[in-house]
């Protein structure tokens, strides 16, 4: 399969990339790792006139941490995030990054590309929702920082303007006694998940839930959240019964499509049990347990 012909550009700075994208107009698309875009082009779901390859731009592929923030450059690959220092202290990053597709795809695919595509089945959006991530964007008007929940507008739709690029993903450092987990359910490693659950929570000294954030992936046009489900759990001891009640609320908000990965009913059934499994890991991690990864796709 070949994409439609296009012209290819390889700028060396973010500024040059933005200038090029502005000049070339709406037929031009930025290209990062290509693990979403190239399949889209091969299937002729998009036919850009120009591709602006941003992968050689220096300074966009490092991860730094300080007391407040983890800053992940947009061109960091999933493999790089999975093996980072940040993933050692926040293992939910490894759950997600290390479970995306397979080793070959993780070596090329980037976190910035993934959020920019906003595929409703992709792994990053649900996790970034619960980690309250911020997306740093740079465009002709300058730089701005947008919360992930405002950044992802709809299925395959972000708030990115013309010639605007994602340059960094910022994740606030979780407070003490926090834990998270992310599990995607899929038939084989290279597949997109049929359903996924992301949870991040903080316990108080009595072991009650102080803060909690929940999101479902592959369960609607963008990650599914439920204030009702979070309200059931917040301030309480996270018993299985309470978690089951929250799962019902959350699943009721979901609208997974019936497709090759399963019927809507099947996916909602999976989401229920996946939620309980993910919550158990998040609670144990918040309590200090060292749980390396949540799942293996083999």
């Amino acid at each position: 399969m070949y994409p439609q012909p296009f012209r290819y550009h390889r700028p060396n700075s973010v500024k040059d990339a933005i200038t090029l994208l502005t000049e070339l107009g709406e037929g031009a698309k930025p290209l990062a790792g290509g693990q979403s875009l190239i399949p889209i082009l091969k299937m002729r779901m998009d036919e850009p006139s120009d591709l602006v390859d941003i992968t050689r731009i220096p300074g966009l592929n490092s991860i730094s941490t300080d007391n407040d923030l983890i800053r992940i450059g947009a061109l960091c690959t999933h493999a790089q995030v999975a093996m980072s220092e940040a993933a050692l202290t926040i293992p939910v990053l490894r759950d997600c990054a290390g479970g995306i597709a397979d080793p070959q795809v993780r070596s090329l695919g980037t976190i910035g590309g993934s959020v920019s595509v906003a595929d409703p089945s992709s792994d990053w959006p649900a996790l970034l929702f619960v980690l309250d991530a911020k997306i740093v964007c740079q465009g002709p008007e300058g730089s701005r920082t947008v919360g992930i929940r405002d950044f992802i507008v709809d299925s395959y739709t972000t708030c990115l303007g013309d010639a605007e690029l994602v340059t960094e993903i910022q994740i606030p450092q979780p407070p003490a006694n926090s834990g998270g987990a992310y599990i995607g359910f899929k038939k084989a490693a290279p597949a997109y998940p049929a359903a996924s659950v992301a949870i991040q929570l903080t316990l108080d000294d009595a072991g009650k839930c102080k803060e909690i954030s929940l999101a479902l992936g592959s369960a609607g046009p963008k990650p599914i959240i439920s204030a009702d489900a979070e309200a059931i759990l917040k301030g309480n001891k996270l018993t299985e019964e309470l978690l089951k009640q929250a799962a019902e609320k959350l699943v009721a908000e979901s609208s997974p499509p019936s497709d090759a990965r399963g019927s809507a009913e099947f996916k909602q059934e999976i989401l229920r049990s996946l939620f309980l499994k993910t919550a158990a890991t998040a609670i144990n991690r918040a309590g200090g347990s060292n749980i390396d990864g949540t799942h293996d796709y083999v």
């Binding site: 290819y8 390889r10 290209l31 290509g34 693990q35 190239i38 399949p39 091969k42 390859d53 992968t55 493999a79 597709a101 397979d102 080793p103 070959q104 795809v105 070596s107 090329l108 290279p190 597949a191």
Partner: peptide, 25 residues
């Protein structure tokens, strides 16, 4: 379609699927 891995090669030390990368990249 980047699923089966038959096209896997090593690029700059890493295994990648060569059906999902442009030669120019």
């Amino acid at each position: 379609t980047s699923y089966c891995g038959a096209c896997t090669i090593i690029l700059n030390g890493e295994a990648i699927k060569s059906c999902t990368l442009l030669a120019v990249q």
